[in-house]
Design a protein around this nucleic acid. Structure first.
Lengths: 142, 142
DNA sequence: TACTTTTGCTATTATTTTAATAGTAAAAAT
DNA sequence: ATTTTTACTATTAAAATAATAGCAAAAGTA
């Protein structure tokens, strides 16, 4: 499990946590697709291996970007949720999405994302609002 | 050299180009510290190995994020410059910097960055303006 | 109640990527 | 003419990731 930082640079330090090949895709699945369980993360197009998924979830948990809990009516499934700190990464994920959509079509076939043509700040606030309201629903079940 | 994309997701595709351990730090050095040469990139705090630096510069060049050229009065040094496409990543780098500055102080000693307390959009436009004006100066020498 | 399936992992080995370091050729400086 | 600098490449070691199998507990089904 990674734990050391390369330098005191805030950019380098952030990348030491979420700058690997998978972390931001897990956060994408949580924030944009409202995925919550190990199985759901495993089912993404990019095919993350279970051992890597497991170690990444642990790392993100250790930096308080996600929480792990069970619901009262289900002792099997673990529910992973984003903390406020991670929800604040929304703008970065949205900007990455906009940039890729705009610049990578000549190198790869890029999926069209609904609503990505709207204004940036509106996209971000909508994403956050939806995620937070989803969390509320979850907590009611609990 | 990496060349395949994991999926059609614009986020995953962007990360397939700049989502490794080093690319964004090279872009940081170029955009924020106005570094231009192999030697300057090698001298950063994070100590990138020359073989990795070399392969990353090639990859970024292949996706037209940077250009490589020599100046008329110096046949030895290669000058690497960001393209407009890469300059558009400024907002992402600034957001990463703001996020790290705000959230990682409890895990690592984070350097204070001058001006990071200013308004986000102002920081971004200033960063871009400074880089573009630096490029102008370079071209005059050429 | 017994059997099957699902979920959330861990373990293992292979493959790929990264790290560390030495070395080299051409240009520039002395 | 010799030394130093720059921009790398080459090599080997170490670490991370990929691929796959397997397993225990919970849940669903007969």
């Amino acid at each position: 499990m990674k734990s050391n930082f390369r330098s005191g640079c805030p950019i380098a330090s952030t990348l030491d946590i979420i700058g690997d090949k998978w972390s931001l895709l897990i956060l994408r699945d949580m924030l944009l697709h409202h995925k919550m369980t190990f199985k759901e993360f495993s089912s993404s197009d990019e095919q993350i291996a279970p051992s890597i998924l497991s170690s990444r979830l642990k790392l993100l948990t250790s930096y308080n970007l996600i929480t792990k809990q069970k619901q009262a009516n289900n002792k099997k499934e673990n529910i992973y949720l984003l903390t406020e700190k991670a929800i604040e990464l929304s703008s970065i994920l949205v900007d990455i999405s906009i940039w890729g959509d705009k610049h990578l079509r000549k190198f790869n076939q890029i999926n069209d994302i609904e609503g990505l043509d709207l204004e940036r700040s509106l996209i971000i606030s909508t994403v956050k609002k939806r995620y937070n309201s989803m969390i509320q629903d979850i907590k009611i079940i609990k």
